[in-house]
Amino acid sequence: MKFAFFPGCVSRGACPELYTSTVKISEILGIELDEKALEAASCTGAGVLQEKNQLLGDTLNARNIALAEKQNLPILTICSTCQGVMSQAEYRLEDEEYRAQINETLAEEGLEYTGKTPTRHILWIIVEEIGEKKFKSLVKRQLDGLKLAPFYGCYLVRPSKALKFYEKPERETCLEDLTEWVGATVVDFPGKTACCGFPIVTINEKASLKMVGNHTSTAKDLGADAMVTPCPLCHLNLDQYQDRAAWMMEREIDLPIIHVPQLVGLALGLDPEELKINKHVISTKKLLTEISLKP
């Protein structure tokens, strides 16, 4: 399986551990990541650009996808937000007129968007392409006894039409399925598809922190050892702002947040250091001892 790798901005910025762990697990899973294909790509806009100018945002995303199409490769993302934004662009680009309008601009660079291969998040690829049987055969370290709370990130679950849930209903529970495949237990909690608050953290910090506090403390109180998320923006908020949120709520939370590739990496037998699990703000030491690993 070869993909044009779209790492997104944050995995090369504030969450470098996501990038590292993605590369490590891809080798084992048999996913070939072509990084050159999208060297000329841009940020997806993360919904922020789209709020200012949707046509501009869709054009940039169509361009990113067209760059991959030129190499005959589908795109692989590692961020819920990147994925969601691109899926929404793909959904709007199903309209012929709109597509033609955008292709006019892309033609100036010699590119064309056809939409022949939809973009997918690595989590979807594991669940849809690799599948349970093959994945379980690669698991070297069963994470029994580990209780994990899933946190999808808004962009990976809404709007369900653009994310094609009706065609691929497994996407609705993919994070929970993966958790079970690595032998861990899912801690179900009401906020698993809610918002982490990242988009308003610089605008309305108090509301953002309440969201962080509510979701992490609820999961913690229901017995979670950690929270796993496919979105580095969620990770940023839930991890880096958790202490501040706890202070605001006047309680302790201390719930480590890990990325999906890190969870997969642990199950595939990789060392925590290789996966840079020690590079989080909320310490993962206790978590690693839970699964009898040296932190």
Partner: peptide
């Protein structure tokens, strides 16, 4: 929103 747009315009990718 404006800062985001400007940064992508100048660099293509975001700098947090």
């Amino acid at each position: 929103a404006k800062a985001f747009t400007d940064l992508i315009k100048s660099n293509g990718i975001l700098n947090e």
